[in-house]
Computed example of a mutant assay.
Amino acid sequence: MRARRAQDVPIGPPPLADPATLPHLDPHQAPWPGGEVTSGGVTLHVRETPGPQDTPAVYVHGLSGSATNWTDLAALLSTRAAGTAVDLPGFGHSRPLASRDYSPAGHADALLCFLAGRGRPVHLLGNSFGGAVALAVAARRPELVRTLTLVSPAMPDLRPHPHRVSDPKLLLALLPLIGKRARAELAAMDPRTRAEQVVRLCFGDPTLVPEHRMAEAAAEYAARARLAWAQEAAERTGKAMVAGWLRGESLWSVAARVQAPTLVVWGERDRLVAPRLARRTAAALRRSRLLVLPGVGHVAQIEAPQTVARAVAGMWDAVGAGTWEEPG
């Protein structure tokens, strides 16, 4: 099926679940318990949320993120699905694979094997780089993905984005050759400064981040700094992603092969992946809805968890009822 053109096809908003059907969000919710799990020959560190086991949810973080990026959203969706938030190989507390393959395809292979080993379809959710990985898994193994949620997925984009200059060091660090100095400077930062810098770049309004969440992020950066493989994983993953864009590898053709009902979520203040790609991304997918959130940046599941949860739950409910139809 030919990818839909964004300018030609009406893309409807998702149905939103009644907020009364979602649990109350504890603003001080602690990260879910974690541990290593081996499935399909792949060992990942995961954080698991209890809930109904019919169709579980699997959450995939972005670059320099971890399973804790999904703490609040997994809590809000826990009455509808048990959750497994994974640390991709080399991230969070997951050890790298023996192959040390940090390419997007390598991460997708690892996640695909992990899901296949569990032997049943899941609701798959991914943010940023994790969205690109989830997209590839859904295209390659449609029987494993019941629904797909993409939060600001890292779609290829080499055009200038003016807001990216607000913190160029983080962006320069992704470039394969010229980013060496920026990567060294990032590695030398203390954990609190690094957390504050990431928040400034990723959040639409950084002032809304509560102090306890900032402290959690700083503690996580400090813990990762003690892992021998952490810097290698972040650098090589970022460089491999950008190198793929430079070589012309395209997720747009991958998106056209996805069969699962898909929710695309984007923040209007996203400084990392341009909001102009939101409509094009939704149009490239066969069975999509698009939710664009004003005032929100790159990590909508953290910045606006209640709204994202209503949209995700609304999709799950509609798919279960057979009412999720292709717009237009």
Rank of each mutant, 00 (worst) to 15 (best):
Leu263Met: 03
Leu186Lys: 04
Phe203Lys: 11
Gly248Ile: 12
Ala215Gly: 08
Glu235Gly: 03
Leu186Asp: 07
Met241Gly: 03
Arg213Lys: 11
Pro160Ala: 02
Pro261Asn: 08
Ala255His: 05
His212Gln: 08
Thr262Ala: 11
Thr262His: 06
Val242Asp: 01
Trp229Met: 05
Val273Trp: 01
Gln197Arg: 11
Glu268Lys: 07
Thr193Trp: 02
Val199Phe: 08
Val209Gly: 04
Ala255Ser: 09
Pro191Val: 03
Val264Arg: 09
Leu158Lys: 04
Ala218His: 07
Arg159Thr: 15
Asp190Tyr: 06
Gln231Gly: 11
Gly244Ser: 09
Glu235Thr: 15
Asp157Trp: 13
Pro176Leu: 06
Asp205Met: 01
Ala256Glu: 15
Ala256Ile: 11
Ala240Met: 06
Arg276Glu: 15
Gly238Pro: 04
Ala230Ser: 14
Glu232Val: 03
Asp157Thr: 10
Arg269Gly: 07
Asp157Lys: 08
Pro176Phe: 00
Ala223Asn: 07
Arg192Gln: 10
Pro176Glu: 02
Ala173Tyr: 04
Val265His: 07
Ala228Val: 11
Lys239Ser: 08
Met189Val: 03
Gln231Pro: 00
Ala260Tyr: 05
Glu216Ala: 13
Arg257Asn: 13
Gln231Asn: 12
Ile178Leu: 04
Leu175Tyr: 05
Glu185Gly: 01
Arg183Glu: 14
Ala278Asp: 00
Arg200Ala: 09
Ala187Cys: 06
Ala223Pro: 03
Gly238Arg: 00
Glu211Ala: 14
Ala222Gly: 13
Gly238Met: 04
Ala225Thr: 06
Gly204Met: 13
Ser250Ile: 00
Leu177Asp: 10
Leu263Pro: 00
Arg236Cys: 05
Pro261Phe: 03
Leu227Gly: 09
Ala256Val: 11
Thr237Ile: 01
Leu172Arg: 00
Ser166Gln: 14
Ala219Ser: 03
Lys180Asp: 14
Thr237Ala: 13
Ala255Thr: 11
Leu272Gln: 14
Leu227Arg: 15
Trp245Ala: 08
Leu158Val: 08
Leu175Cys: 00
Met241Lys: 07
Arg164His: 05
Glu235Trp: 14
Glu185Lys: 05
His163Ser: 15
Ala255Ile: 15
His163Arg: 14
Ala173Pro: 00
Leu172Tyr: 01
Val273Gln: 02
Val209Asn: 03
Leu170Tyr: 03
Arg181Ile: 09
Ala184Ile: 09
Arg224Ser: 15
Arg192Gly: 03
His161Ser: 06
Leu263Ala: 06
